[in-house]
Design a protein around this nucleic acid. Structure first.
Lengths: 221, 221
DNA sequence: ACCTGAACACCGTTCAAGT
DNA sequence: ACCTGAACACCGTTCAAGT
């Protein structure tokens, strides 16, 4: 951790790397090569320093990740988005903004769920959904429960889609699941067999909005 | 991969390790120390062999994981569970079985979503939900969409809960998120501040069934 | 047929020492 | 004050060689 610079001129070795430069490089690395490629060692190489140097500016890898997440949350929420007047629509709009923001950078969900890391700015989404639910007549408990249901649904959607497309990018052939679907016993699994060949197409369709509205509609009085 | 034994007596060195023994040890290791502790090297130590020996019996780590998952899927689905007569209830029951099966071993979700690994037996859940939806009057597309929504919601719930409790187990203090909630600006986030102290309790409550029924009710005619 | 030592190409993290 | 070499304790995987 950098000790605060004293006022009277530079008393020691002048910096060649800064915390900001490290964060920039980390973002670039993630965006270029994917978040699983972000390692302290690669990052060090990227900025032309030793791994130990990174540890002088950053506490550990988690610390680095929180900062990166915060950057994106700020970017997405500056300026604060306008939300519709109708409370239910407000919830839907906030959830959809969150969903789309995450869908643009799906690896963010991995980190959020893995480490429960979340900057204060991201709480704007939570606040907006709670506010909408309470305005629609829910008590605070119900509002929290609805938010949670939306969060589970949203995180699940992003995670599963992200991991699927990662696989599709990496590997040539069909996924394990698609192979299993192809050689299914139609007597044991008639419904599944009937849609097996349309499976990739059907599961690629975006039904996020429908599920979201189902959750909102059922939770609010 | 083991070459099939020829009929006329043992022509080579007799085995001291088998694929089955490796799978048993893998399951035991996961159950004892958690799934992130399952490494080929640890597994080898556990069975008193070298890492390279594991690779003689198992293609790679993914291969090992598929086998372990299949074991649990079989266990859960033998004998095949009875489902209610009412189609909607059938979907809810199949989803809840899947949910509870996953909740008992949350790390399974990590592997399923990460690697799209899924044995044929686990497809019973999918078949049951599709069948219920079609029996309730949905066309196949709608049935697939409903199944997917349920899967997103279920996987998200398990993943987020699992990772939360893992953190809670490991670390002493409150999570990052709880810390952020505690020192929230009540003017910026009034609704969130109002429930901040009850957050752990409120989010611990199980509202899976409510969300599930919301999705089913909204999707079916 | 089955098993292994040794290596390859990686990780995150620490710490005494250098400038 | 800032940076680093070298080490520690790990990974998954391969392959020539041994029994």
């Amino acid at each position: 951790m950098p000790r605060g610079a004293t006022k009277g001129g530079p008393p020691g070795r002048p910096p060649t790397t800064s915390r900001a430069a490290i964060l920039d490089a980390a973002r670039e690395l993630i965006e270029r090569d994917g978040w699983e490629k972000l390692t302290i060692r690669r990052l060090a190489t990227e900025i032309g320093a030793s791994p130990a140097t990174v540890y002088y500016h950053v506490r550990d890898k988690d610390d680095l990740l929180v900062q990166v997440l915060n950057f994106y949350a700020e970017e997405l929420l500056t300026p604060r988005p306008e939300l519709p007047d109708d409370p239910r629509e407000r919830i839907a709009a906030a959830a959809t903004l969150m969903h789309d923001g995450l869908a643009a950078r799906p690896w963010v969900v991995e980190i959020i769920t893995a480490d429960d890391l979340l900057g204060e700015s991201a709480l704007w989404f939570v606040e907006s959904m709670l506010e909408g639910a309470i305005a629609a007549g829910a008590d605070p408990e119900r509002a929290v429960h609805l938010y949670r249901q939306i969060w589970y649904y949203t995180a699940g959607e992003i995670l599963i889609r992200a991991r699927r497309s990662r696989r599709h990018g990496e590997i040539e052939g069909p996924t394990f699941r698609e192979q299993a679907l192809a050689r299914l016993d139609p007597d044991l699994y008639p419904r599944l067999s009937a849609v097996a060949d349309r499976w990739p197409e059907l599961t690629a369709e975006d039904t996020y909005a429908a599920g979201l509205r189902a959750l909102i509609g059922a939770a609010l009085p």
